[in-house]
């Protein structure tokens, strides 16, 4: 499933959600989502709490399946191929589409092992030392940790831990990196470092980021998806507007988007 068999017209879209609905049991958490993620761009998902941003993000690499009795309807295409087709192994999906979580969660192992473990389980054949250095350099962490690779990853500061988690995700060579509020637990300086890092990474990777911070979305992203509960009284979230970030923040089409991004909401 890794390579698209045929170049479709939309092949510059890495991820496409079509008529997507996500359920937890009988509860429909996300409804009627259409959005496309472009290659080597940063796509932000914003919206109020509880509208299904993280749920949508986790559907992109089938992490939502780890919650029992969750299911989807509709389609998510990865490079033109159905992610949820019966012959697709979720392990491969998560290998190609990596994830960085809200709270930094390094393994309670050494910095070196944090990077090497993922590569090893996927049967990495090259020189491990080089891969570790390369991944840490990509995550702009190498200079800070090169002398203490054998120390525990948990001994690092919060911002460093989060970059370690990014390096860990990069080490298995994904094509897409999903970030679930990666900076929400960090101070502004560490946040800035993560944002600068994202700009570097988008040269080689496609990034989808969920954020509560609208300045962050405005500063860092190329496209923005605005999510809201679909209707008053219903509890399903949906993407109400999806466009280039500059349009969303300067000239939104939907009144609710305008209210939200200008801080007039609630």
């Amino acid at each position: 499933m890794v390579q698209p068999q045929s170049k479709t017209e939309n092949s510059h879209y890495v991820l496409e959600a079509k008529n997507l609905e996500i359920y937890y049991g009988s509860f429909k958490a996300v409804t009627d989502v259409h959005m496309n993620v472009e290659r080597n761009k940063i796509t932000a998902i914003i919206g109020p709490s509880g509208c299904g941003k993280s749920t949508l993000l986790r559907a992109f690499n089938r992490m939502n399946e780890l919650v029992s009795d969750s299911s989807i309807r509709g389609e998510i295409l990865f490079q033109g191929q159905d992610l949820y087709a019966s012959n697709v192994d979720p392990v491969v999906v998560r290998h190609r589409i990596g994830m960085v979580f809200q709270k930094p969660n390094p393994f309670p192992k050494s910095i070196y092992e944090n990077i090497a473990w993922g590569a090893r389980i996927h049967g990495y054949k090259g020189k491990m030392d080089e891969l570790v250095e390369y991944s840490l350099r990509q995550a702009a962490l190498w200079d800070e940790v090169k002398d203490k690779l054998n120390q525990s990853g948990l001994a690092l500061s919060g911002g460093q831990q989060q970059r370690l988690c990014i390096a860990r995700a990069l080490a298995v060579q994904p094509e897409v990196i999903l970030m679930d509020e990666p900076a929400s637990a960090l101070d502004p300086i560490a946040t800035l470092k993560i944002e600068e890092l994202m700009q570097e990474l988008k040269k080689n990777y496609t990034i989808v980021i969920v954020t509560h911070n609208m300045q962050q979305a405005a500063r860092a992203s190329d496209y923005t998806a605005m999510m809201m509960l679909s209707k008053d009284g219903e509890r399903s979230g949906t993407v109400i507007e999806f466009d280039e970030t500059k349009h969303i923040f300067t000239n939104p089409k939907d009144k609710r988007t305008e209210d939200y991004v200008t801080g007039r909401f609630g």
Partner: peptide, 21 residues
Amino acid sequence: PGSLRNASYGIGATKWQTVWS
């Protein structure tokens, strides 16, 4: 903690690899 399991699954580990390591 669930975050540890997520970290492992998030880089494409199988269930057995996650449990064992």
